[in-house]
């Protein structure tokens, strides 16, 4: 299965993480597994690369973190979306919808030409 380009993965990281966290609070390992499953393996974040992104989002106050003991008895750092993060996700959704509409329009024209 071919993976997506680095640039595309990079650009979509923030909306993807915020979308996942808007549904449920989660921790790094679970986020990586979730993204892998949803994208059918097309997006696979590196184990060590996701955490700096999460910390950057936390610094921007889009998400908040806290330590919690999970059901398995192990300590895990959970992340949840903040109000500011929800607003950011809304803007991201609008932007991606616009891009999606532009590309759909362009490709529809192309196919009709052929």
């Amino acid at each position: 299965m071919e993976k997506l380009s680095k640039e595309l993965i990079g650009a979509s990281t923030i909306p993807i993480i915020l979308s996942i966290l808007s549904k449920n609070e989660s921790y790094g390992y679970e986020i990586i597994q979730n993204v892998k499953k949803i994208s059918n393996g097309k997006i696979e974040y590196g184990d060590g690369t996701l955490y700096p992104v999460l910390h950057k989002l936390e610094k921007k106050e889009l998400i908040a973190s806290y330590w919690k003991i999970s059901d398995s008895g192990r300590k895990r750092k959970y992340y949840k979306i903040s109000d500011k993060g929800k607003k950011e996700l809304f803007t991201e959704k609008e932007n991606w919808t616009v891009i999606n509409q532009i590309i759909s329009k362009l490709w529809k024209i192309e196919t009709s030409l052929i």
Partner: peptide
Amino acid sequence: RDNIDELESHLQDE
């Protein structure tokens, strides 16, 4: 220390 603890929890899951 917090970063390392977080990575350790990831390592344990893996």
